[in-house]
Write a protein that binds this DNA or RNA. Structure first.
Length: 588
DNA sequence: AGCCATGCACCG
DNA sequence: CGGTGCATGGCT
């Protein structure tokens, strides 16, 4: 079983997916030469000026280290980059033409890693690097990494029993640490391979090639790549040994697991759970797997709050913030979903087949993808309906009367949230009635509007560093928070499309509530602390000056949490270099 | 026009 | 004859 604590524990290594290559017949053939996409080779492998190149040490998924000769041939006025001596490696992986090899780098060591993906199956075919604790960066370096990253994610999913760290702290865009691989030369490769190249592979390989053209995108854009927690949820699956209960409702299949799996923000140390009896919120360790039915008595982690008679851990203000975050978060989430969709090259069959949703380049336009989520055939990456959010690969629609764990949890939490919201609203109205009767009609709206102004003129210096794409997402923050009466009157729709709510209708979906209920409340509720954290990390960047009580500030932090915190870290770690397109990979 | 899969000549 | 380096041509 996955331990999220371990999953997100501190590790000093981060895996940076680099690129992938669909093996051609030539690549998989007995010649032992793997043609590298030129852009990938120049971007991610050490620069070579001589055709002889240099040996590259690359560790495969089993931990075995291979040494390939990375070199090029003059070709016309250009170069053809190849890896020589790949045959034994490809043999050991039992790869053939059409299969995909992925290249990654483990930082800060700079160690090169390679994985693979079989073309014949969408299923998991490999284990992730098993020799030592590793981690995935939550932020691939740039867009073309997507497919490679998906391969790694697939790798990860194949090793769900192991502890893998997801960390973005050590990401260092543009920093190529090749010294290790270059210093350790020597070839140990030879052998043969049996090719069986499907005709279609040509086209697929070309797709990879076309993607590689985007390798050298602005490094700043690369910083915008990140993996949202929703997509992280995609990575989390119950162990294979866990068999879901399959239920068919309205011709749709459901998978229900005993536990409702959900992931918490690793940057948070807690999650929130609500008592089934008293509806109080309790703070729980982040790695606690919340069962569908939970009461204060189950709060074994904090005996001082293991009784319904003990006051709520959740303060009214926190709850208030939670609601105010809702709409904005949906906007952000929707925008992220679109970016995910854009990031999916529609011609990349493998990526589609994998259904890996990765928040990719935020600004680069791309062809609309037809890729669906792994959760629901009609949904798309970024969809945040209950089906797609449901971590354990839930399928199909949940109808309003569904009593599955997920729905029950959401409904329960929704109920309590509604109660609290109503209570708070009535309190406020009563208070306002004493002050000014004229405020009756638009109290809530006024309050909301005061919190939902578009981006302030004064901008956090750190935000100025961000790309326009993120600014765009940020600009979507002019949200319209649903008002409680509308929520109350609305039909709960577990399958509402996220975008649909942005139309401003009174329609409210369970999706938004699920976001509140399923995602760690700490993410929403600890803005101040996180704001402080950001301030600390950025030192004298000036963000400390932001009033922590400002909702917009909170909202930005909220967005940062979901989309930009890693980028902030990058900016902190590499303040200058990352603002320029990376040229280190260029040939000298 | 550039990339890349693959053909093929040359060389040991 | 197999490996190496380069050339060719399809494809985008």
């Amino acid at each position: 079983m996955i331990s999220l604590t371990n999953f997100f524990s501190s590790s000093n290594s981060t895996i940076i997916p680099l690129f992938e290559k669909v093996l051609s017949a030539s690549d998989a053939g007995r010649i032992g030469r793997l043609v590298l996409p030129k852009a990938c080779a120049e971007a991610y492998f050490p620069p070579i000026s001589q055709p002889e190149g240099l040996p590259l040490r690359i560790q495969d998924v089993k931990g075995k280290e291979w040494v390939f000769q990375f070199r090029f041939w003059p070709n016309n006025n250009s170069r053809m980059y190849v890896l020589e001596g790949v045959t034994p490696c490809i043999q050991s992986m039992q790869l053939q033409a059409g299969d995909t090899v992925t290249f990654s780098r483990m930082d800060p060591e700079g160690k090169l890693l390679m994985g693979f993906r079989k073309a014949s199956t969408v299923k998991i075919t490999q284990n992730v690097f098993s020799t030592e604790p590793t981690s995935f960066s939550a932020m691939p370096e740039n867009l073309p990494l997507m497919s490679g990253y998906s391969g790694l994610l697939q790798s990860f999913k194949g090793s769900r029993e192991s502890s893998v760290n997801l960390s973005s702290k050590h990401f260092n865009s543009g920093d190529f640490s090749w010294y290790l691989t270059e210093k350790n030369g020597g070839r140990n490769a030879d052998g043969a391979f049996s090719p069986s190249m499907p005709v279609s592979e040509r086209k697929r390989s070309r797709n990879i090639g076309s993607k590689s053209k985007r390798l050298l995108i602005d490094a700043h854009d690369a910083l915008e790549l990140k993996l949202s927690w929703e997509e992280l949820q995609d990575m989390l699956r119950p162990p294979l040994s866990v068999q879901p209960t399959t239920v068919t409702i309205e011709d749709q299949e459901f998978e229900e697991y005993e536990f409702y799996w959900y992931i918490t923000d690793p940057r948070e140390q807690e999650q929130w759970a609500q008592c089934d009896n008293c509806f109080k919120w309790r703070k729980l360790p982040a790695d606690y797997l919340l069962p569908p039915h939970w009461t204060c008595q189950d709060n074994i982690s904090d005996h001082s709050r293991s009784s319904c008679s003990i006051p709520d851990d959740l303060t009214p203000r926190e709850l208030e913030n939670l609601f105010k975050m809702d709409k904005d978060f949906k906007k952000q989430r929707s925008a992220a979903g679109q970016r995910i969709t854009q990031a999916h090259d529609s011609s990349d069959l493998d990526s589609q087949a994998n259904g890996i949703s990765i928040a990719g380049d935020l600004g680069e336009p791309g062809p609309a993808s037809v890729a669906t989520t792994t959760k629901h055939p009609r949904h798309r990456p970024g969809c945040s309906c209950i089906v797609c959010i449901q971590p354990p690969s839930g399928k199909g629609k949940h109808n309003p009367t569904c009593t599955c764990n997920v729905c029950m949890t959401v409904k329960r939490r929704f109920k309590t949230l509604m109660m609290r919201k109503k209570k708070r609203q009535s309190e406020r109205e009563a208070e306002l009635g004493q002050r000014n009767q004229l405020m009756w009609s638009s109290k809530e709206e006024t309050e909301v509007d005061s919190f939902s102004r578009p981006v302030k003129p004064e901008v956090d210096p750190s935000e100025k560093e961000r790309s326009g794409s993120e600014t765009l997402a940020r600009g979507h923050s002019s949200y319209q928070l649903q008002k409680l009466p509308e929520i109350s009157k609305s039909q709960l729709d577990l399958n509402c499309h996220p975008n649909r709510e942005d139309t401003g209708s009174s329609h409210i979906s369970m999706m938004s509530l699920l976001q509140q209920a399923c995602l760690p409340l700490e993410t929403y509720l600890r803005q101040n602390g996180l704001t402080s954290l950001v301030s600390e990390q950025q030192g004298s960047s000036g963000s400390q000056g932001l009033p922590q009580d400002t909702r917009e500030s909170d909202l930005r932090v909220q967005e940062d949490l979901c989309l930009a915190s890693t980028a902030q870290e990058q900016e902190k770690d590499v303040p200058k270099e990352n603002s320029e397109p990376d040229q280190t990979g260029k040939d000298q």
